[in-house]
Amino acid sequence: MSGIRTGFVGIGSQGEPMARRMMQRFPLTVWARRPEACAALAQAGAQVAGSLEALGQGCDHVGLCVVNDADVLEVCARLVPAMRPGSLLALHSTVLPQTAEAVERLCTESGVAMVDAPVSGGAPGAEAGTMTVMCGGAEAAFAQARPVFESFGRLIVLLGAAGAGQKAKIVNNALMAANMGLAQAALQAGEALGVERGALAELVAASSGRSFGFEVYARIPEPRAFEHGARMLLKDTELLAQILPGSQDSATLVETARPFLHLATAT
């Protein structure tokens, strides 16, 4: 086991298996607002910190995977000042690029390296160690973080300065949502023409119209069955709408994704 002391904050459906993969190679400390969220990792051998500050003080590398911009800024305001100079914060949450830039500035003030590193692959990818890690930050920080990222990631790419990883992740997720919306329209068109849905789904999956979004949509009985995933994709699609330039061409992805997402999340 490597001597890099790692920490993780954000023990959710994606963060928990990422942390488990890290723990296979590195000593791991975790913290959560709800102590019960750490119970399974503690039983597997992770240390549980008494506070965010204690976790920051004791780790060389901290992964952060909380849900939204406000949570990221709240956690970092406490965590980063407690981290030792020379340690590193990896921001795995999907947030606005300017939030990632603000976290990097906070880290710089404390002498802490930072990599903006949202991921793709979900819990199955984390469990298998096959996630895609979309990175933004300085080359030296990227090199420092990479050994830990390799515990759960297969494709690990440096895309530019802090915020670049967020931009890539937001575009990727909006494309996934748009593909699911087009899959819905395609299957509805097939049904209107009298083509059996299951047979059409099997055919497209083996043909030129296939996409991961189509495969996911074809497995669900109706849009509301994808409600949890759709809420996360809707959040990311709205982040893209906030940062896109104001041209109609650049808004096409957002407008294609929204109808399906609103249908899947309708109350």
Rank of each mutant, 00 (worst) to 15 (best):
residue 84 R to Y: 05
residue 65 C to S: 15
residue 16 E to Y: 03
residue 39 A to R: 14
residue 184 Q to P: 05
residue 257 A to E: 09
residue 62 V to R: 08
residue 156 I to A: 08
residue 161 A to S: 15
residue 212 F to K: 02
residue 216 V to P: 06
residue 143 A to H: 10
residue 264 A to K: 07
residue 257 A to P: 00
residue 191 E to R: 05
residue 219 R to K: 14
residue 95 V to F: 07
residue 191 E to C: 02
residue 48 V to F: 03
residue 136 G to Y: 01
residue 61 H to N: 10
residue 121 G to W: 01
residue 148 V to N: 07
residue 130 T to R: 02
residue 262 H to P: 02
residue 171 V to M: 14
residue 72 V to A: 09
residue 175 L to T: 06
residue 226 F to D: 13
residue 187 L to E: 13
residue 235 K to E: 07
residue 90 A to Q: 14
residue 52 L to R: 10
residue 191 E to V: 13
residue 215 E to Y: 00
residue 241 A to E: 12
residue 186 A to N: 09
residue 4 I to G: 04
residue 231 R to E: 15
residue 74 E to K: 14
residue 245 P to C: 03
residue 237 T to N: 07
residue 40 A to S: 15
residue 204 V to M: 05
residue 102 A to F: 06
residue 125 G to M: 06
residue 28 L to K: 12
residue 48 V to H: 02
residue 67 V to G: 06
residue 258 R to T: 05
residue 185 A to L: 13
residue 22 M to N: 05
residue 3 G to C: 07
residue 244 L to K: 06
residue 187 L to F: 10
residue 165 G to D: 09
residue 265 T to K: 06
residue 58 G to D: 14
residue 8 F to C: 01
residue 110 S to Y: 06
residue 127 E to G: 00
residue 106 L to C: 01
residue 41 L to I: 10
residue 18 M to A: 07
residue 147 P to K: 01
residue 108 T to Q: 13
residue 30 V to P: 10
residue 205 A to H: 00
residue 51 S to G: 14
residue 259 P to N: 09
residue 161 A to V: 07
residue 55 L to N: 11
residue 65 C to F: 12
residue 172 N to Q: 11
residue 8 F to A: 01
residue 202 E to L: 03
residue 243 I to K: 03
residue 247 S to P: 01
residue 92 H to E: 13
residue 80 V to R: 05
residue 74 E to A: 15
residue 249 D to K: 11
residue 67 V to Y: 11
residue 238 E to N: 13
residue 99 T to Y: 02
residue 235 K to V: 02
residue 56 G to P: 09
residue 64 L to K: 04
residue 198 G to M: 02
residue 32 A to G: 12
residue 39 A to E: 15
residue 78 R to N: 12
residue 227 E to V: 01
residue 240 L to A: 08
residue 212 F to W: 12
residue 193 L to T: 04
residue 111 G to A: 10
residue 191 E to K: 02
residue 60 D to T: 13
residue 133 V to S: 00
residue 124 P to M: 08
residue 103 V to I: 03
residue 134 M to E: 06
residue 9 V to Q: 05
residue 180 M to N: 08
residue 252 T to V: 15
residue 160 G to W: 11
residue 116 D to W: 06
residue 238 E to F: 04
residue 114 M to Y: 06
residue 110 S to I: 00
residue 253 L to Q: 03
residue 78 R to L: 14
residue 167 K to I: 04
residue 176 M to I: 08
residue 61 H to D: 13
residue 254 V to K: 02
residue 114 M to D: 00
residue 127 E to R: 00
residue 145 A to R: 03
residue 127 E to L: 00
residue 115 V to Q: 00
